[in-house]
Amino acid sequence: MNWWSRPASDTQITHGGRLWLYTLAAIIMLLLVIPTLIVVPMSFSDSQYLEFPPSNWSLRWYEEYLGTAKWIRATATSVQVGLLTMLVATPLGVMAAYALFVSRHRATKAIFLLLITPMIVPVILIAIGTFYAYGRVGMNNTITGLVLAHSALALPIAIIVVTAGLRSYDLSQEQVARSLGANRIKAFFLITLPQIRFSVITAALLSFLTSFDEVIIAIFVSGGANATLTKHMFAALRDYIDPTIAAISTIMVILSSVLLLLTQFLGSKRGGNR
């Protein structure tokens, strides 16, 4: 029996009978992937008009990007804000996730709900809200203000990722460590943390990416010398199609892909640890 006529599912439908599904799924997956990756070849085009496939290959848009002080400074800001957001959101997220996981207090459910509000509230509201509040305290256009706002966005993601890690961890290990003579803090750092480390790293990567890719809050509360890459990109998109954006986008796509593959790898490692 060849693959074609073998049953594809529990209802004994064959792979041949499923051909329409495979075709359809392939088309949809291409529709998902092509627009994500198309910027990569286009960024190497010599033309002002972003043809595909490019008739002449060149690195001029990368030169343009690297040679423009505005882009370089914005990139530095975005990286700086992303890293700081990661450094704020990851430990805070781990602490909160651990506390909510271990505590049996009645309030934990309400606190969890409070901590995930940044996922519920439309970002535009967070943007104008912080813009207004920062205006009152003079924090607009500051790195601190942006990091704080991005940390709020990253916290629920970090908490959810770390909580998932804790769920697949046997908490009795921590109890054993304590019975063997470790106090709570030692037990956490010596036993629990090393075992949820993949979740913690994933949370850190996602916190960075959340900040690095964030547009709307950046539009409002970042500016001047501290404007982010996304803010400049958004401005450039609204006005005209600057092929430099293709070069920057390519860099961002590569960054996302690397981080994604990293978390997939960590995920499979975490699964193998169980």
């Binding site: 704020v88 997220g93 602490m95 506390a99 271990v102 505590s103 409070l114 901590l115 207004y132 704080l148």
Partner: peptide, 23 residues
């Protein structure tokens, strides 16, 4: 144990709750 969530709560209160209440 619950005090561990306080820093995260402060961030959320500062960035989400206070500005939203203000709006």
């Amino acid at each position: 144990i619950l005090s561990l969530v306080v820093p995260a709560m402060i961030v959320i209160i500062l960035i989400i709750l206070i500005p939203l209440s203000w709006l």
